[in-house]
Structure formats: C-alpha cells, structure tokens
Design a protein around this nucleic acid. Structure first.
Lengths: 343, 343
DNA sequence: GATGCTCTTGGGAGCGCTCCCAGATGAGGC
DNA sequence: GCCTCATCTGGGAGCGCTCCCAAGAGCATC
C-alpha cells in the first residue's frame, strides 16, 4: 500500500539503533559500537551495520545520546560587547565566519549569544554551565567583563578571542587566540620610518583592551614620542583623535591608526584639512579589512587573519574538549603589512 | 569538610526532578507539573516544589526532556550568502541582534550556521531536519537559494528575512518579515522632489533580490525616468554606478542609493568629481545605518528597523512553533526617512 | 583434551524526563 | 449513608541511547 517515500520521514517514526541492529542481524551493542567508531567490531558486523544504516537512513537521536553521555554537543559563542557598534565590524564578521566554518566540520552545534546589556550578561552567565554547553568561545576584549572568569571558575572549557589584559585574573592560564598586535604596530611604524616620515602620529585604541595596548606598544618601540591620541576603534573616534592630533602637530607627515575604521575617520579629517594622502600624510590602518580596498586612496593596513583566528579558536576548544594535553592553549597569529595606496 | 560552594556544581551531581520531589514531599509527577506550569496542581504542592527547586538550584535536564517530548528546543539561524561581504553590513548585524535578544527571552537555543560555499549549503541543508531543529530563521535574499524551499518541503517552521521574489516557488505562503521597501523608495524620491530636485538618479540594488526590485519600483513610481544604474548593495558597486551616472547625466542634482554602503561609494565619487553635497547633488541612502551619521556630510537615509525585524522574525517563528493560527505569517515594517545632512 | 588468553558479541541497566492511568480525596446531590 | 463527579496525586512505562558485564568464539599453549 505504501508508495515510494522520502526516506527522511518514513511514517514519522525514524529508525532507532534497535531497528538498525535488527536489520543488520546484530545486537544493539554492536550497532552502537559501529556508529561510534569503536575498533572492537569485526569487519563483517561493521559492514552489515553500515549497510543497514544506509538503507534505513538512520540518524542517531541526539537527545538520547546526550542523556547518557552527559555531554551536550553544544558550544556557546558569546559576543559580549556593549552596543551594536563592534558586531558590524569586519573583525567580528571574519572571526565568526572562521568559527562557523570550522565548527561545521564537527558534531558540535554552535549556540550564539550576543550580550550587550548587563541583564543579558547575567542571563548568559547563568546559562553557561556544563548543564547546557560543553565549552565556550568568547569574543570580548574588555578587561572588566566578568564572564570569562565566571566560565573558567565553573571548569568549562573556554577560548577567548584576544589576549586578556595582564591585569585580568588568571590571565596566565586563560586560553586565547590573538593576532600579534605588538608586532603589527611595529610593522606599521617601521614602514612609515622607512618611507622617510619623521613626524609620525598614532591614533591608538582603547587602553582597556589588550589589542589597544599592544598595538600602541609596538608602535612606540619603534617610533617613540608621544604624538598619540586615543579612540575606541570606531570611525567616529578616529576622526576625533585625528582632529586633536592635527591641532597638536599640524606638520605631522604620517599616522598609524590602530583599527581600519579609525583610519577611515582619520583620512576623512585629513582630507577635510586639505592634506593629500599619502603625499602630505601617510596613513596606515590595522585590520586589513576589505573595506580598506575601496577608500580613496586604498588604505595600507596591518592585516590580521580574522578568519584563521576563528578557526584556531575552534581548534583549541576541540583540543580542550578532547582532553588533549598536546594542544597548545595560547596561539598568536602573525600579522603582515598590506600595502595599498595610503602609505 | 565542605566549605561554602557555588550551588551550581554541588558534588558534580546535579539534582534531578526526583530529588526535588522528595524534598518537597510530593511525587515525581507533581514536581514535573509544577516545572512545566500545569494548572492541575494544588497551591500547597506548588509552593513546596518551588521552594525545593530554589533550595536545590534545580535545572531541568534538557536532553532528558527532549528525548521524551521529541522536540529539540533549538532553532537554526541560517545566514546564507556568498562571500563575507554582507555579513559585515549593519543590516545583518541589526537583524541578528534582534533575533538574539528576542530568543534570549525563550527556552530556545539559537544555532548559528553561516553558509557561503555550496558545500556548506549542502551540509546545512542536510542538517535542517526536525531531528535537529524545531524551526528555521533564514537570512537569504537570493532568488536561486534552494534552502528555503527545501526546509519548507520538510514541513519545518520557517521565517525568512526579506520578501522572496515573486518568481520564487511557494512565494505566497512563505512566512517572512521585511521592511516596506517600495514605500521607502517612494519616501526618498518624494523628499528629493520636494527639495526641488529635478534630475534625480538612482543607484539601484541587484534585481535578483526583492529588496532591490521594490526600492527601485517605489522610486520610479514617483520620479519615473530611467537615470538608473545597478549595484549589488556594496560600497564599491555604488561608486561604479555613480561614475556611470555622472557620465550619462553630468547635470544630475540628486541621487537615491538603495543601500547606505552604495550611498557612501556614490558620495565618494561625487566629491571626487567636484560636486558639493548637498548643494550640487543631494544624496539619500537606504538603511539608516549608524555609519551614516559619521560621513561628511552625514547621510540622509531611509531607515529600516533591522533590530525590530529580527524580533518580529522570532515572534512569527514562535507563533508557528506554538501552532498559533492567530499569528500573522507575513509582516512588513514601516520605513521612515531619517534626515541628516546629505539631502 | 584441558587451560588460558584475546577478540567479539548481546543485551540488561539506567540516564532524567514527561505522559498517562489509576487511585485518592473531597464536595455536592440524592 | 451512598453515589457521582471533578480535582489532584503518585508512580509505572518508556523515550533512544551508551556503558558495561558476562559469555561465546577462536586460537595457541601446556
């Protein structure tokens, strides 16, 4: 009576592992061992089970498995930033993409939580228990964010994006992935020096984020001086800082901005002030974002491999989940100067 | 021997509903009824159970519940776009934020899947079954994306962001949330007319997306004419289109760009061509994105409530999940012209 | 042929929960 | 006092899976 059907919804009752075992002519245990890749199975039994699985279109029931294994197969991705400013930055987009694509190779699900208010922070904090997730990936650079320590205290595997500030608790053991911000700052400064620039200013990032501190530090190692104004990585703050810098030193001939958006803002102000880029003032950003290709002139920038950072975060977390001691817990990825037109 | 401990990890064995029932002096069934908000419980029993839950810090085991209820309490958020261009746009960021915050009020988990390659598309497609998720939210505007129809065919609750093109299959019944793009286009055109502009050009969006079509349609209803060039919503494409428009009609005195990034590109080209904004050429964008506040001059733009769109998508999906016939299945949200400096 | 080993196997037990049925309780009507 | 009905309650059954134990099979050794 039944005609050909999509195997994906046979009669609304999907096959269980018992069905598979029966069809393969083996016991439930053996079927389970095959599904979970145990080596303790004879080739014949394995083949029979695999055939049955294929014919029945068997998919293991996640809930049943999680119930007995006491894992959740679920990893939280927490994006913890006030306001919506940062999420729209290419930096975040690249990392999320990297994480997502690496996670797609896995059994794991990626649970997304965006935290901007303190009430959301509290809600999320309460949720981040072993009861709900196996591990946590966190995009949060602010030193005063309590979530990382909280997660860590519960013994949940955690990988941060961005080195925590030295002032943070447990900073030594916090696993993280970051770009080599200090070297990036050095690369920018060195290049500007090599161009023959001598009055080099810096639009630095916020000093309550490790990235802001390190980029400035690297820059200063090479250039010295104190022609520095601070922003918060946003375009607007970059424009403000640039205005201040121009006032302090009208003769400046180069600027290093610690983020691409800040560089965009700085370029806008420079142009409005009648400076030609790069002839009068050379500009170097930090991010190497795609948007920098389309400014006028295109922005020379220190590239950080955001997508790779996301993939590395995932790799570190998987290592922790597997209890693999060999996996390193802190990874710093190289930056490189991407020459376009602004310097 | 034991000192004060975080109740969240007492002895590594979390209380079960049986523990709660025992402590409250009731049966397992009654405890379960209280947890699930059944009305068939006497006030005294309810109070006792709630007290026990509180004292024990009881949290229901999700896997066990899902096993028996045959739900997953999990909703997929699929962001289906080629390349990483779009994800970094404020449009996406706002919607994701809205979805995330609405979902946080819920039992549901949000499973994130970013799809850019066709292999990822296939993987995701295979995963989007009732076995894995209860429903799907999809951010995908391209007409040729097979995922929506696939999900729909499986009978999974689905809400799209952005009205599907009329050419798409099942378009009539596809639940979606969108901004009123046509009216938005009209608003922009009308305003430019009211300003006394007479040679009004349009940088239109891609015509394989409903948003691109509708915004142009609305614009044309008011302005007519064929001073139109097409972009793909990106800044670069906006610049290209603007260049072409200037060539075709050097005397144009206004431009409507169907996205903010395209407007940014257009403004850049206009300035490079020596046009003053808004004196020589008035510019109106579409998005009302925060970035538009910091251009020079700030960008007048048709605002679409992205965050609200995300919240509405969530609401519609929850309605479907609850089997609530009263919940409308298609929502179109108002746009409004946000006056800044460029027009 | 008995013994000891390894490799493989089947299936009982049980994870924590909800569903549902049968029973207890109490109020109300005869 | 007895029956009926509605309300509330306890706990058995069972969701689909993995874990683990005991036992069978096969082989080499004594």
């Amino acid at each position: 009576m039944s005609r050909l059907r999509d195997t994906s919804d046979m009669n609304d009752s999907r096959p269980t592992i018992e069905t598979v075992a029966a069809r393969a002519g083996v016991g439930r245990g053996t079927a389970s061992r095959v599904v979970n890749g145990s080596s303790q199975v004879s080739p014949a039994a394995r083949a029979a089970v695999l055939k049955a699985i294929d014919e029945l279109g068997y998919v293991p029931n996640r809930a049943a498995r999680n119930l007995v294994t006491r894992r959740t197969d679920c990893v939280a991705l927490v994006i913890s930033e006030p306001g919506d400013r940062l999420f729209s930055e290419p930096y975040f987009a690249g990392i999320v993409r990297g994480i997502s694509s690496a996670m797609a190779q896995t059994q794991l699900q990626l649970w997304l939580s965006m935290v901007s208010s303190s009430s959301e922070r509290e809600r999320t904090g309460r949720f981040l228990t072993r009861e709900h997730v196996d591990g946590v990936l966190m995009l949060s650079q602010h030193a005063d964010d309590p979530l990382p320590a909280q997660v860590r205290a519960r013994g949940l595997p955690l990988v941060l994006c961005g080195q925590p500030l030295a002032a943070s608790p447990d900073v030594g053991e916090m696993p993280f992935v970051d770009a080599d911000n200090a070297t990036g700052g050095r690369q920018a400064a060195q290049y500007l020096l090599e161009l023959g620039r001598r009055r080099i200013a810096c639009v630095a990032g916020p000093q309550d984020m490790a990235a802001g501190v390190a980029r400035l530090e690297g820059f200063r190692e090479v250039v010295g001086g104190d022609l520095v104004e601070y922003g918060d990585f946003s375009e607007e703050s970059g424009a403000k800082a640039m205005t201040a810098l121009l006032e302090r030193e009208p003769e400046l001939d180069a600027v290093f901005a610690a983020s691409d958006p800040m560089a965009f803002g700085a370029m806008r102000v420079l142009k409005a002030a009648g400076r030609r880029i790069p002839e009068d003032v050379a500009v170097v950003g930090f991010d190497g974002s795609p948007g920098g290709r389309h400014t006028d002139p295109p922005l020379t920038s220190v590239f950080q491999p955001t997508e790779e950072m996301g993939r590395e975060m995932t790799r570190l977390l998987l290592g922790q989940l597997a209890g693999d001691q060999a996996t390193e817990s802190q990874v710093i990825l190289e930056t490189r100067l991407e020459l376009r037109g602004s310097a």
